[in-house]
Amino acid sequence: MSEAAIVVEGLTKTFAGRGRDARPVEALRGIDLSVRRGTVLGVLGPNGAGKTTAVRILTTLLQPTAGRATVEGHDVVRDAAAVRSVIGLAGQSTAIVDELSGRENLEMVGRLHHLGKPGAAARAGELLEQFDLVDAGERMAKTYSGGLLRRLDLAASLVAHPAVLFLDEPTTGLDPRSRLAMWDVIRNLVAGGTTLLLTTQYLDEADELADEIVVIDRGQVIAAGTSEELKGRIGGDVVEFVVPDGSRIAAAVDAVEPLGESRPTVESDSGLVSVRVGARGSEALVETVRRLDAAGISSVGLALRRPSLDDVFLALTGHAADDTSDSEGVSP
């Protein structure tokens, strides 16, 4: 038995293209990745990177153009039925029927998983409990907020105790509070030993939830590693401040230089000083204040900037994480 729950080799998908001037779309251009059993892989990439396409191939919804993928040892093309019996999927699409209550939705899924009527009812009860949906469970799903709906949908994907779970952008479109709640739910799941492949557009989400991260851009893997490794490559947190008095900039740079991992950079027009401080963000922020104070330098707009997906992309590819997808035909 291999340790890998998901293995992907050279996965390629070319869509025929839509519309009149249909050019083929290379959604995936040879992706390799693997996910160790019981761990979380974060697939990080901007809109249109190919995340959903990859998830759809891995969940047997789409045939790859080339390459190979296995889930728990089953080939996603030749052994699709076996793959389906060990996976769960939640994310951008939903299995929830608006006119059924939360409980009825879960029972329906249970019966489609052949748990039998009593089995499905018992499992629905368990999941409502586990996902803090007991109160909402008797209401029709159409009355649910976005956050509740995502939780119910996630619960639905877990009815059959899947060994491998796929979550396609589970928090996109949620307000910050529901997002945090969702993170908690996901962390609990993972603690139970489920293998998870999660796609996201947010570095902080991948950082928060994933053991390893794969960054994809335009259908290719452009970086892979742990969150720490990735942040190392992009320089981690950045402390920024503006010195309005141009003649004091050099003194400010000298004052904060010991905090940085490299020499601070200066934008001389605006007087913006940026210091890369690695993972020691908040600590470095306090220290910056102290040192500028001690040197008698007045500054404005002091801030700690955590790297965003944009920073990742800028560092890895030299271009920004542009939105290339979704609005076909409307090119900027």
């Binding site: 969940t59 047997t60 919804l61 039925a81 769960g88 699409s93 939903t94 489609l112």
Partner: peptide
């Protein structure tokens, strides 16, 4: 359009269902 059919197809249910 909503992806409901996708989600049903990920379950090990009969193709005819």
């Amino acid at each position: 359009q909503k992806g409901v059919i996708d989600r049903l197809r990920v379950m090990p249910i009969a193709r005819s269902a």
